[in-house]
């Protein structure tokens, strides 16, 4: 995968987030503060713009630019968390003399690094009803696909459906991190907005891959 692929990915996330903006906001209204859709729409819109304004030459630089843009434009909890995820993913792809192509294994490693960044910053574990509940299984699915020597399409589909399943699995959970934790038991019965947006991010890998093919 090259910068063109990653640019399509980010654009695909931005489109999905815009299309699902109201749903994300409604999920956040139920157990948070009703801004998650607007937050990510602002952030990924800005990321697309940043990539267009000054297209990075290498995949690592591209993901770092996306991460930095999210951090500097989103705010809230999701800004630093997703920003760190993309920044750490970019870092893992190397910071100087970067390759212009990354393998599926590279990407899996990068997203693992991104996930580590999120859990380091937010100290959420799986089961806490956060984006981690979609992020972690998606990265595991990617890693499994890599080990099994799967192709990109298959790997992305596995990651996307793992993320989606992870997001849906947050519904019965009682939140232990983020705003939803204030509701205690009342947080059960609602899907976590960050997990839902994380599922969109992994689904966009498939779209970017189809655009590629």
């Amino acid at each position: 995968m090259d910068t063109a692929f990653l640019t399509r990915w980010i654009a695909g996330i931005a489109d999905a987030v815009r299309a699902e903006r109201d749903r994300l906001t409604e999920l956040d209204a139920a157990i948070g503060d009703a801004d998650h859709g607007a937050n990510l729409d602002r952030g990924f819109g800005a990321a697309v713009q940043a990539l267009a304004d000054d297209p990075p030459a290498a995949p690592g630089a591209l993901l770092r630019l996306v991460g930095g843009t999210l951090i500097s434009r989103v705010g809230g909890a999701s800004g630093p968390l997703y920003g760190t995820a993309f920044r750490e993913a970019g870092r893992s792809l190397g910071s100087s003399g970067e390759a212009s192509e990354v393998s599926l294994a590279d990407l899996a490693r990068a997203l693992r690094a991104g996930l580590d960044g999120v859990t380091r910053l937010g100290s959420a574990a799986e089961g806490d009803k956060t984006m981690v509940d979609a992020f972690a299984p998606a990265v595991r699915a990617l890693e499994t696909a890599v080990s099994a020597g799967a192709g990109e399409r298959e790997a992305f589909e596995a990651a996307a459906s793992a993320a989606l399943a992870g997001a849906e699995a947050t519904v019965p959970m009682v939140a232990r991190k983020g705003r939803a934790s204030y509701l205690g038991p009342r947080s059960a019965g609602h899907e976590d907005p960050g997990a839902a947006s994380c599922a969109l991010i992994f689904a966009a890998l498939c779209t970017a891959d189809q655009g590629h093919g």
């Binding site: 503060d33 801004d35 951090i71 500097s72 434009r73 705010g75 800004g79």
Partner: peptide
């Protein structure tokens, strides 16, 4: 001041 109900950004 951040956006409505959204933390400001580090910048």
């Amino acid at each position: 001041p951040g956006e409505i109900f959204t933390s400001p950004v580090p910048g």
